[in-house]
């Protein structure tokens, strides 16, 4: 190695770091905007991870999280003999997969269909109507559902007027999961399709023009231009959704469910709520459930990513 090579090796990183720092400094105001986001993740996502140790401890208020005594896997043993826990795991997976199978494709289809509407005013009106439910909280939606679907609610009164039997929408175990999925689709499809609409607008319009000249009809254009154009974002959102599959919708279910349908709708989050707030609180047990949930989510995310990479060559990791 000669002198000039040596000097290149020694100087290059320094220049790079200088350049990087200079680039950051040049765009310091943009980076400043990043700070609240970073602070959010640090404070609410990373620092609380130290609380995971509670899953292996018996929490004592006077000793704090770090000072409480270790008890090995006792919390997990207690958890795994609890039949309700396994019912909650089963329900979480069933409801989450139902939501993925039904609610995940709807916004994609909706976005593609909205993209085909040519009248701008009509398109915007329809989009507003679809998006609006997203801004209603689940508390409000649950009130509406109760008023409409209870035995003496609007729908049942209508059925009674038409000489049909009243339907126990809210207490029938066969109906309830479908009701949850329907409400989820109604509330969130319009909002979720915005991302796909944005992806569609980024597709080069000349591709459509060329395809039209080549004789492609609407279906062909959707099939061969729009779909490939958004497939990447679809894969990414699918992987992200799989990574949070154990979040089957706490806010929705806690506001709508009732004891008659616990067996089919009690999910891990509602289970944690119950064992924490409707029994003597055992933070160790609740932390054990949280850890179980986190690990399951992580495994599912990695698995889905691996499958996506194998099938389409696209993943997020």
């Amino acid at each position: 190695m000669n002198k000039s090579e040596l000097s290149t090796h020694s100087v290059k990183p320094s220049r790079q770091s200088k350049t990087l720092f200079a680039a950051i400094w040049r765009k310091r105001y943009i980076y400043l905007l990043l700070l609240p986001g970073l602070a959010y993740f640090a404070i609410f996502k990373y620092i609380p991870i130290y609380g995971v140790q509670l899953a292996f401890k018996k929490y004592a208020v006077n000793l704090g999280i770090t000072g409480s005594p270790w008890i090995g896997f006792s919390n997990f043993n207690l958890l795994f003999i609890d039949g309700d826990f396994w019912i909650a795991v089963r329900n979480t997976l069933i409801i989450a997969y139902m939501q993925i199978l039904i609610c995940f494709p709807i916004p994609i289809v909706l976005a593609v269909l909205l993209n085909e509407i040519r009248q701008r005013k009509f398109k915007r009106t329809v989009q507003t109507i679809y998006t609006f439910p997203h801004f209603l909280s689940w508390v409000i939606v649950s009130g509406m559902v109760l008023n409409m679907l209870s035995t003496n609610g609007a729908i049942n009164n209508l059925l009674a007027v038409l000489n049909f039997d009243r339907v126990q929408f809210l207490t029938d175990k066969r109906i309830f999961r479908w009701l949850l999925v329907f409400l989820q689709a109604w509330k969130e499809s319009g909002w979720n399709c915005i991302m796909y609409l944005a992806a569609i607008t980024s597709i080069d319009p000349t591709l459509y023009e060329a395809a039209t000249i080549d004789g492609a009809n609407r279906w062909h254009r959707m099939r061969y231009i729009t779909w490939p154009g958004i497939s990447m974002i679809v894969v990414v959102t699918l992987i992200m959704r799989m990574g949070s599959i154990m979040d089957a919708g706490f806010e929705q279910i806690i506001n709508i469910y009732n004891p008659a349908v616990y067996e089919v709708s009690d999910i891990i989050d509602t289970y944690v709520f119950r064992i924490t707030f409707q029994r003597p609180a055992n933070f160790g047990l609740s932390a054990a459930v949280g850890l179980f949930k986190g690990i399951t989510n992580c495994v599912l995310l990695l698995t889905t990513n691996w499958i996506c990479v194998r099938l389409s060559g696209t993943g997020i990791l």
Binding site: L78, N258, P259, A260, V261, Y262, Q278, R279, N282, L285
Partner: peptide, 17 residues
Amino acid sequence: KDTLGMFVSEVKAKAIE
């Protein structure tokens, strides 16, 4: 008992179901 409670909410929920 301190950990598991007295199963009150479980009993009521099942009875209702």
